[in-house]
Amino acid sequence: MRYHTYLSPKKFKLMEKIRRIYVWEIPVRFYHWVNMTCIIVLVITGYFIGNPPAIQSGTEAYANYWFATNRFLHYVFAYLFFFNFLLRIYWAFAGNEFANWKQFLPVTKKQWNEIFEVLKVDILQLKTWSFESKGHNALASFTYFFMFLAFVLQCLTGFGMYAAMSTSWFPQLFAWFIPLVGGDTAARHIHHILMWVFIVFAMIHVYLVVYHDYVERTGVASSMISGWKFITGHKHHD
């Protein structure tokens, strides 16, 4: 306790009130990191599929197989991505309140208020912060809702296109989707645009995590490893 004597009484008082809460359960953290790995691999291999590098090779085709291997990796990680996503959907019903599906749909007035609050405080920086969210803040979770929709669309177009080159029953479950968007070309286009959505999302996401940890010091960055966050318990919603 000697350490605390260096703090002002006011800060000491606040220190006392900081407590730890268990926010992200193991399935959520597992999902998060597997998903991150999948998206990184899928974006890199996917970009190569859409825009293969120019190789001026003097060799014949039989001596190389890297492009097929690249595509193979893309498909393997696509499967991983899909089933990992299923796990997360399951956990939206089985997990704790911070993982619950209701988090991702702003249907209450409180959630909408929080969205505007986050916009004012964190994005536009019009005022200093006035609250803390225990789990996701309402704007973040609403964004994730759209990301989940993008995941679904990416799986539908991806496995739908894959169905034509696979004899497995699984991709055939997605084959119906391709005629709906007007054929493989349209599906490929959608798939490609969504890749950029993921890239831009990842940039913003990583930045905002760093930002929140930097300003709010709730340990949000490490919370996805440990599962725990620090909260002061002041003016937080709920």
Partner: peptide, 18 residues
């Protein structure tokens, strides 16, 4: 089947030769 799947240049695709 796709034209791609029956194309005689397909090995070059898998080899990444374009």
């Amino acid at each position: 089947r796709r034209v791609h799947d029956t194309c005689y240049r397909r090995p070059n695709y898998d080899a990444g030769l374009f």
